[in-house]
Design a protein around this nucleic acid. Structure first.
Lengths: 224, 224, 224, 224
DNA sequence: AATGAATGAGGCTTCATTCAT
DNA sequence: AATGAATGAAGCCTCATTCAT
């Protein structure tokens, strides 16, 4: 009833549904892109998975963008799932790497660490927006064998933030009744950046990161 | 008959990939569930779209859970997309309705309004977690004709929050250098609740909403 | 080296490789052919599996002969393997049924029973030659779940013949140093009939069955 | 590298369908195995064709067992069909060679010749069981150009047995109403040995051959 | 002699949808 | 309102083979 005014439509691939993210940059972290066709595949698959979702991006679609035939994909990856798994693994690894690097570089007090980690988290989601969106939105498309090592990485990233907050609370620096809730809220803020960030949207990734770091410190009750 | 002993040979889709959300409740807002099979379809489709994604949940899957055959689905909905569109429309409508109701019930100052709106936003994402996840994660699966009216609703919800923040800033009550960024961050916190909320996770939706309202007021620079 | 005089040839489907069997009759036992398309599928699949082998007969080939499209096959059978499994099950069931009926109808002495059983075995392989060839040649194409119930039937048929021979030996009527070897040899004679039998080859199935029954009694040392 | 943890995800073809034969020996007749990779290919192809059938054993499967890549197969054989053809040719040639040698070595009476030939036939099918199974079960996979010379060999073997029986009948030594039927039955007994023979099954090939020779002489009406 | 990459053909199967009943 | 049968399109993937290196 409520929808009866809508006529049945088969959506051709050219019509543009609402985009899952704004940016069009498919940048992968430095040093992880394989050479040759493998690397091209990874980039084109990333773009397609982001645009249409893993289930709706076909092997043929990817191959076409790479400039090879569908069958040739299998000279480089044993299955479509392996491509997705590699992308998501790269995304999670890079995220964790940056988070750890942030902690290592920061002064050893919870406030400095929180600022560093939230900045890293936010920057990662802005700079690798497409990778971040696919990593989150399509994780559920991975079979358990593929997902397990990735989930392990994810847990480490979460723990890292959680520990900082808990330490701040323990030291009486932070004022939050529910530390895990604070962790979840702070994490969520950064996650979402990947969906709307674009180099053209008027703020640099750095500016956003600075703002979000301030949001986070305020959120845990540190005046600023 | 002769083959009945072979029935069990095909492996059902049992593998449990990482879940997109924790809750298993498919609750739809009161008053919107159609009577009869239509309502059952809506609920089962919701669960399947949440579990597997729109593209990976087939008409046959839905029909099977409803207890009818795939062809019979078309006596109730003209297409699979219509089912998704109706679900997402319901989700967005209910969200906007609650947001507006929150503003209406709140005192007329930005702080009270912010608290009310963040509480409503958070509660909606906890109470209708499955609907919220599908509404966000699968919006991109809708053809533009389906998506347009929904995006209009979404913009209204965003505007509502943005306006409150802007008013707080204008009145000197809030201290944020970039009001839109604050809006995005606050919105993001609540969105994510839908993914991890569950009645069993130790906090009530109300408790979460209270915490998040405090997070929001702190985030805009109001001490609390 | 030995083959170097042969040029590489892709064999088009029209060229006729050596046939696995002579007969072209696809007869199935009475009462087991399902009505409608299912029955037609069974018959055409039988012919194709016999001609080309299970692995080389495609779903499209079968569908084409039936007069439907490949996808429509799945309204009738859940997989190609199910079609093969049903055929082989039918073949083994009918074979066992006839063997048992032969024993039941025969006088209660081992010679009469041997004659009856060998006649039944031979007749079954002549009259359902195509089914017999597929049942034997393609059993290995079935996954264990499909094969298990069929192997159980096969074992019963073998046991039936083995028991008769053993009883003849025990009663001093048969003179064979190795009863199992006799069973295998007698069984093998009949099996092979399916490959060369044809209504046009100058002997009736009955005549062959009579000859083979005599061969069998002589083989176990009964003068005749 | 980055994906090395995913290597184990694809399920290898482990399921054990009913085997077409029991033995696992891939022995080829002495003197015919080519040196180097060609010989290894022949042996591994033989094993795979026997296990899965020609159509279901891929060039890649064979190459993998040989320890080379699929493309390298073509440095040794011009096509997959050539490998099968060579195997079947070897099988038939060896069979005919042994049959002829048996006649040559036997005394010049039909009974002695029948015994010698049946022994040779049986021994060949026991000792080269795998080769025999492939030679029979996959002959139909060969294009006519490949099959023709092989069928010629086969006809010679059959003729050889048929002539002996006919001579026995003509001399009044054998008592069979239908000589060809006797030939077919005797041939069938031996054929089947290849499917169940195994060095571990309790009888030597010689013992089986002796038994089958007795079966054959009895079958043609010679007391023994 | 070996290989990585590529490819056209084709494999089985699923899908959303239609239509006569 | 429901369904069995059918179908065009498309899905992922495998295959035998080729070719430049």
């Amino acid at each position: 009833m409520a929808m009866s005014h809508l006529t049945a439509v088969r959506m051709p691939k050219t019509q543009t549904s609402p985009r899952r993210l704004v940016t069009e940059a498919t940048m992968l972290p430095p040093g992880v892109t394989p050479a040759g066709s493998r690397g091209v595949i990874l980039n084109e698959a990333l773009r397609l998975f982001a645009e249409r979702g893993y289930g709706s991006a076909s092997i043929r679609d990817i191959a076409e963008r790479v400039g090879i035939k569908a069958a040739s994909m299998y000279s480089h990856y044993p299955s479509k799932a392996h491509v997705l798994a590699e992308l998501i693994k790269i995304g999670h690894d890079e995220h964790l790497r940056r988070m750890r690097e942030a902690v290592r570089s920061a002064k050893n007090d919870p406030v400095s660490q929180l600022v560093a980690v939230v900045r890293a988290h936010t920057l990662a989601h802005a700079e690798y927006a497409m990778l971040a969106v696919v990593s989150h939105a399509e994780l559920h498309s991975l079979a358990p064998e593929f997902a397990a090592p990735i989930l392990a990485v994810r847990r480490q990233s979460e723990m890292l933030l959680a520990d900082i907050i808990q330490r701040g609370v323990n030291l009486g620096l932070f004022d939050v009744p529910d530390a895990q809730l604070a962790m979840l809220a702070i994490g969520a803020m950064g996650l979402r950046v990947a969906h709307w960030f674009s180099p053209d949207q008027g703020r640099t990734a750095e500016q956003i990161a600075d703002n979000y770091a301030q949001f986070a410190t305020r959120l845990v009750g540190v005046a600023s």
